[in-house]
């Protein structure tokens, strides 16, 4: 009896190692039921927002910076050339957006991104929808500001502001079906500016609202057509990004 008591007195509880607990928890976890709902976000809206705003957000800062430059410029310097200025600023802002979309070109991350639940195509669509919408809201306010400071009518300003946005995206999607060049978007930026300036210069004298609206509608139609064609081509090629 005394021997038993002595043993009990001398007995010390062994220290439990952290690794042991971790491995035990891991072992238990493997037996827990694991459904898709446990791990994955089901809400498409939440998914879209998460994807759009994950990663680098320098594009947002740049967009705001360009907007400030525009506000300053239109007020102090180029009031008379407002249409040209808004076209240029709009295409510059679109260029920043395109850069944010295409950051996966240079590093070949697309291959692992393609095997994700939210594939590269979906990321592109989500970004076009959400960032595009934000961009249009911003442009809308810039156009409104220009309207109060210049003699041009609001619809014309709006059309020339939005025209480069749709034209840039339309050209990007359309041309990347045929050319797999990383320099494509730089070319598009230059192209869009030249085309916009030419168009605006040509029709500036007429200054008809109907013509402005017609230009805008044609760029929207071209945008929808090229994005549709792009996704069809993507599907045919097995979904690889065409510029890779």
């Amino acid at each position: 009896m005394n021997n038993w008591k002595r043993k009990l007195k001398d007995y010390t509880v062994p220290e439990v190692k952290r690794e042991k607990i971790e491995s035990l928890v891991e072992l238990c976890a493997t037996y827990l039921p694991k459904t898709i709902d446990d791990r994955f976000e089901i809400s498409k809206v939440k998914q879209a927002l998460m994807v759009t705003f994950s990663g680098k957000k320098s594009w947002l800062l740049l967009e705001l910076l360009v907007s400030v430059i525009f506000l300053f410029g239109i007020y102090h310097i180029v009031k008379d050339q407002a249409l040209f200025f808004i076209t240029f600023i709009s295409s510059l802002m679109t260029f920043i957006l395109i850069l944010s979309f295409l950051q996966n070109i240079s590093y070949g991350t697309w291959e692992i991104e393609k095997t994700c639940m939210i594939s590269t195509e979906k990321v592109l669509l989500y970004k076009i929808m959400i960032i595009g919408l934000l961009h249009m809201v911003l442009l809308f306010f810039l156009s409104l500001y220009t309207f109060f400071l210049t003699p041009y009518d609001f619809v014309t300003i709006l059309c020339y502001g939005f025209f480069p946005f749709f034209l840039s995206f339309a050209l990007l999607f359309h041309l990347s079906i045929y050319f797999h060049s990383k320099m494509l978007f730089l070319g598009i930026f230059i192209c869009v500016n030249i085309i916009s300036f030419l168009l605006i210069s040509s029709f500036h004298a007429i200054s008809s609202i109907a013509l402005s609206v017609a230009i805008l509608i044609s760029s929207i139609v071209y945008f929808l057509f090229s994005i549709h064609k792009y996704f069809i081509k993507m599907e045919e090629e097995g979904g690889c990004l065409l510029w890779n």
């Binding site: 446990d38 791990r39 998460m50 994807v51 692992i112 994700c116 939210i118």
Partner: peptide
Amino acid sequence: YMATLKGLKKSY
């Protein structure tokens, strides 16, 4: 970023 693309919940 990749977890987001894989559609994972933030907590998971």
